[in-house]
């Protein structure tokens, strides 16, 4: 479903160049649960942002569902983000002035879903995350784990093909972190495709495939044995 061919990302800062991704080739199929690890600054987030169409590569090809999206314009990329990807960030990235429900409704608003359907879908997804009692709370009234579950609900609500999570447990204590990982495991068992960045090998163990990156290059790509 996702195929990267000789992908590079180079940041130019004045005279020096930073090679964030160096000639990466990678394929991820539907239903996979992939963890990406690597030292800080190795290019994990850069890779994920390109996969999620938030950013574009400097060189190489990106095929999504067989289509070359390297040449897509900003509007087409926005639509791809809306339809195909759900993002979960380390810092939750919820809109602070909106309630949990309104936050989860946002992707559906941009997808043009009607108000009634939107609300039903958002409530259903929040209930799935065990937040039935919290739908009218604002992010500041929720714990970190709850906020991240709202963020996951927002990522899921539009039924995306892929869920992208950049250190989703990074801001959480280990107990809430494990709860979140349990959710990802559950989602995977229901057939969702998940790509996850982490620094924590215990988190990475939830995945089935572990990719390690160093200096913008893939240094290992292996299956993870079942726990």
């Amino acid at each position: 479903m996702i195929r990267l061919e000789n992908l590079s990302k180079i940041y130019k800062m004045g005279d020096n160049k930073v090679v964030a991704l160096n000639n990466i080739s990678l394929s991820i199929n539907k239903g996979e649960f992939v963890a990406i690890m690597g030292p800080s600054g190795s290019g994990k987030s850069t890779l994920m942002n390109i996969i999620g169409c938030l950013d574009v590569a400097t060189e190489g090809k990106y095929y999504l569902d067989g289509r070359d999206i390297t040449s897509y314009n900003q509007n087409q990329l926005a639509e791809v983000r809306n339809k195909k990807f759900g993002f979960v960030f380390q810092g939750f990235n919820l809109l602070p002035k909106l309630t949990a429900l309104e936050n989860v409704e946002l992707p559906l608003i941009y997808a043009g879903v009607g108000a009634k359907k939107r609300r039903e879908e958002a409530i259903r997804t929040l209930e799935m995350m065990g937040l039935k009692e919290r739908i009218h709370h604002r992010p500041s009234e929720l714990s970190g784990g709850q906020q991240q579950r709202v963020a996951i609900a927002r990522a899921l609500v539009n039924h995306p093909s892929v869920i992208l999570a950049d250190e989703p447990t990074g801001n959480l204590d280990s107990k809430s972190g494990m709860e979140i990982m349990q959710i990802f495991k559950e989602l995977h068992s229901r057939g969702n495709t998940i790509i996850l960045i982490t620094h924590d090998i215990n988190v990475a163990r939830y995945a089935r495939r572990l990719i390690t990156i160093r200096d913008g290059q893939i240094v290992s790509d292996e299956e993870v044995e079942m726990q």
Partner: peptide, 13 residues
């Protein structure tokens, strides 16, 4: 940041 979040979840220009 809000604009970034909105764009990430599919807001067009």
């Amino acid at each position: 940041r809000e604009i970034g979040i909105r764009k990430a979840i599919g807001a067009k220009r």
